[in-house]
């Protein structure tokens, strides 16, 4: 009999061991900037582009609005992946927000790397309002990547 993930982890002492399951559906949090990436997602929708339903979009006014705190909170509470998406460099609605976002993301990524956590679960992509197809492609690619990585072990860790 196949053990369900829940029972296996609750009784197991090393609940951090990630397991790959056939029926694993990644949960990805997407912080999308209002002016470019959210519009890009909209375009992907109105263009009826098919994509995985795994991304939970959260609209933010600018990619620089994303406090790394929000990302770590999602990451530590079991989000399998976190995507930040904003306007291409040079195209920020607020002029330079995305450049600052990129620096903050670099800090986040390096901190996570330095701790031996899975930095691959975090992604920063530039997606413009006209790039519906690119939005679809990023979501598909990222979902596949996370699917291969398996569930984020933080989701079952009880001693965080």
């Amino acid at each position: 009999m196949k053990e369900t993930a829940g029972t296996k982890h609750r009784s197991s002492s090393n609940s951090w061991s990630a397991e790959i399951m056939d029926d694993f559906e990644p949960r990805i949090i997407g912080f999308l900037c209002n002016w470019c990436s959210y519009a890009g997602a909209d375009l992907a929708g109105t263009s009826r582009l098919k994509m995985s339903p795994n991304l939970v979009p959260i609209k933010v006014m600018c990619s620089s609005r994303v406090d790394p705190e929000m990302v770590t909170d999602a990451f530590l509470r079991g989000a399998d992946g976190v995507l930040i998406a904003g306007c291409h460099p040079g195209d920020c609605h607020y002029d330079k927000g995305n450049y600052y976002a990129r620096r903050r993301f670099a800090v986040l990524k390096k901190v996570v790397e330095s701790l031996g956590l899975e930095a691959e679960r975090l992604r920063l992509s530039w997606i413009s309002a006209s790039e519906g197809a690119r939005f679809q492609q990023v979501v598909e690619e990222f979902t596949e990547k996370i699917r291969k990585l398996g569930p984020n072990p933080t989701g079952k860790e009880t001693l965080l």
Partner: peptide, 20 residues
């Protein structure tokens, strides 16, 4: 009982977690 001789507080709702 946590790792490294630690004793963190836990909020438990699943009987099997009482093992520790």
């Amino acid at each position: 009982r946590g790792p490294e001789n630690s004793f963190p507080w836990t909020l438990i709702s699943d009987v099997s977690a009482l093992e520790r």
